[in-house]
Design a protein around this nucleic acid. Structure first.
Length: 654
DNA sequence: ATCCCTCGAGTTCA
DNA sequence: CTCGAGGGAT
């Protein structure tokens, strides 16, 4: 394509995206994609030496809606220059140094909506959105509903302050729990609330505002530090993060640290803002058409991208539950190429309005599991996703309980394979090398359908299989053999009784001590166990009344499975005794399973989610939302060294 | 009956 | 990590 034509195409695209983002509050591409297009346009304009009149590089923001009163800002509101790499940041730093800058401030770059608030005589007069930087909208009534924005301040002169309106993640979570119309992300939620003409809606979303700048104050000059002090003294929320540093290294270190821990914050930030503190240097640096030269935003690597849905595949799990997996066009996301993403169930598909051929937002939750957030844009050829009626694996008619789909066929091949691989899994019988794939091979070629058959496999049988050479065969038979010695709780968990996971398996083992004890247990004895109620108790009784199940257990024992007798070797008097502990993040040199074992030895109940009742959160590296939640709830956070110290105290080796 | 907490089960990529 | 559902407190 001719470069000039490409330039026009880029302008049209960016305009469309601007309209969606600024005017409709409904972005249809990720920030990363937008930035890429934007920079391509900037580069083209530089190369051709032409900037068309309607180029978005000339404007800040987009048009204003008619719904709200328009307000012309007293001074133009600038946006921020961006640095995408440390190199770009360093170039800017060196320029500022050359102008004599000594001190730099580093702040969060909040991902919310910018607001400017004017005070006169200590009274809030007017609040406005940024709009296109020259004309914004009057949102005074809406801002008055935000609890942490003071309606009156001690300062008596004329002052305009600037900050960001946002919805805290904990508030978003609360909102989504009580609403069947979940909001995609905190930024959109805040935008929707703030730009709602009905201020009751605004008030109900519990927004917050974090202020970070003083725009004009009776003609006085202020450094960034002065501005920050002023805001704090006058009762504005500044979110308690503000650093002044003097070297490029310090700036980078700070950014690095925040990038690694940002997921534990209760607010969304998409980067860091670095500003020259000294106002004299600010003056000599000056402004471009769009932004001040004395400040720059370092943007974190994008965590959200968009892609096109190609297909939906329904997977059948061991319980028969079907989960939709979405095949998407490959996209780069948080350091990996993503081609599949999960959706929870059919309801999720309906709620998020996902269709084949449509563009969707994709994110890696906890930077790991790809997940579809919602639709960015539908196209003419988008196809709605139908509820399947027969099992994609075995053709059996499916059951639908209005939320989940089930394949009721116990002998459905997928169900058989997943039962085998669950039996072999790490926390169950721990048979190394018996992955889902291997289980499938064994089922398809050797007709293995029951765990007991694993213990009957011979080297000769395995040798005929593709890719099974002597070494692999030996390793596999070896790990099958060594799995024969196991603990009662692992064995019970491996059976895959409906509703019985690791915790319940442990509780059963601790209560009844032996396999026979559990087999013979009466409903009344089982339901007496804490955390086991009617449904799970029935499921357990039913399982051990089924002749097929009892026969399979006998076959396993005949094959040589030995169950270690339970020994209760807990110590008493530890700080963890009878306390509930949640693990999060990566622990140095220790797996979560091992840490759990030690904690249980010390008398702790290790649970999976944080609540008010949690006593300790043991946080490792890169801890995520659980640490954030602990902080909001005021739960005590400890580190691995606290656990190790406690182990030392009781002379437990680790 | 309702709410809150915790468990179970399923998920991706390198 | 996420959702849905089971269990228990109120």
């Amino acid at each position: 394509m001719d470069k000039f034509a490409r330039m026009q195409e880029l302008i049209a695209l960016i305009k469309k995206y601007n309209y969606a983002y600024y005017t409709l509050d409904n972005p249809i591409v990720s920030d990363k994609e937008y930035d890429d297009l934007y920079y391509e346009l900037v580069a083209l304009e530089k190369e051709l030496g032409v900037t068309l009149d309607d180029s978005p590089t000339k404007q800040v923001g987009d048009v204003v809606l008619d719904k709200f009163e328009k307000i012309t800002h007293e001074k133009k509101l600038y946006s921020l220059n961006k640095a995408n790499t440390y190199d770009e940041l360093e170039d800017w730093y060196n320029d500022m140094r050359a102008l004599g800058a000594k001190k730099f401030t580093v702040e969060y770059k909040y991902d919310g909506l910018r607001v400017v608030i004017k005070y006169e005589n200590g009274i809030m007069k007017q609040c406005a959105t940024r709009g296109n930087g020259i004309v914004g909208e009057d949102i005074t009534a809406q801002v008055k509903t935000i609890r942490n924005v003071p309606k009156t301040i001690p300062y008596r002169g004329k002052v305009t302050v600037m900050g960001e309106v946002l919805m805290k993640l904990s508030e978003l979570e609360k909102y989504n729990k009580s609403s069947n119309e979940p909001l995609k992300n905190a930024r959109n939620a805040a935008a929707g609330a703030l730009r709602n003409l009905d201020t009751k809606v605004t008030a109900s979303r519990n927004l917050d505002a974090i202020m970070y700048d003083v725009l004009s104050i009776d003609g006085e000059m202020m450094s960034q530090t002065d501005a920050h002090d002023f805001l704090q003294k006058n009762g504005f929320d500044t979110f308690n993060f503000f650093s002044v540093v003097d070297s490029f290294r310090d700036i980078c270190q700070l950014i690095e640290k925040v990038d690694n821990t940002k997921s534990s914050l209760d607010v969304l930030i998409d980067g860091m803002v670095v500003k020259v503190d000294d106002y004299g240097v600010r003056d000599s640096a000056g402004y471009t058409e769009k932004f001040p030269k004395w400040a720059i935003a370092y943007k974190f690597k994008a965590l959200e991208v968009t892609s096109i849905v190609r297909n939906i595949v329904w997977q059948v799990g061991r319980t028969g539950k079907l989960t939709p997996v979405c095949e998407i066009d490959p996209v780069e996301l948080a350091g990996a190429t993503v081609t599949h993403a999960t959706i929870n169930n059919y309801n999720d598909i309906k709620r998020k309005d996902i269709a084949i051929g449509s563009r969707v937002f994709v994110r890696r939750s906890n930077e790991v599991i790809p997940e579809i957030l919602g639709v960015a844009e539908h196209y003419e050829n988008s196809v709605k996703i139908e509820l399947p009626s027969i099992c994609p694996c075995c053709g059996t008619r499916l059951q639908y309980d209005d939320i989940n789909l089930f394949c009721p066929n116990y002998m459905c091949p997928d169900r058989i394979v997943f039962r085998l691989s669950h039996f072999a899994s790490q926390n169950a019988m721990n048979i190394e090398g018996l992955s889902e794939k291997t289980c499938r091979t064994l089922y398809e070629n050797l007709g293995v359908t029951l765990p007991s058959q694993l213990y009957m496999l011979s080297a000769n049988e395995l040798r005929v299989l593709d890719g099974f050479k002597d070494k692999k065969i030996n390793n596999m038979l070896g790990s099958i053999e060594s799995s024969k010695n196991t603990q009662l709780s692992r064995f019970i968990y491996a059976l895959g009784i409906s509703g019985v996971g690791e915790k319940t398996a442990k509780d059963l083992s601790n209560t009844f001590k032996t396999l026979d004890g559990i087999k013979m247990a009466k409903y009344d004895d089982i339901i007496a166990i804490k955390d086991i109620g009617d449904i799970i108790a029935n499921s357990i009784v039913e399982y051990f009344h089924n002749v097929d199940n009892l026969n399979e257990i006998d076959r396993l024992l005949d094959a040589g499975v030995q169950i270690e007798t339970m020994q209760n070797n807990r110590v008493a008097g530890s700080i963890f005794d009878n306390k509930s502990v949640v693990l999060t993040g990566t622990l140095e040199n220790m797996s979560r399973e091992t840490a759990t074992e030690y904690l249980e030895k010390l008398g702790a109940h290790v649970v999976s989610s944080v609540s008010k009742k949690t006593d300790y959160v043991l946080a490792g590296e890169n801890a995520g939302s659980k640490l954030a939640k602990a902080n909001t709830l005021g739960v005590r956070v400890i580190s691995l060294s606290d656990l190790l110290a406690e182990l030392d105290k009781f002379q437990i080796k680790y």
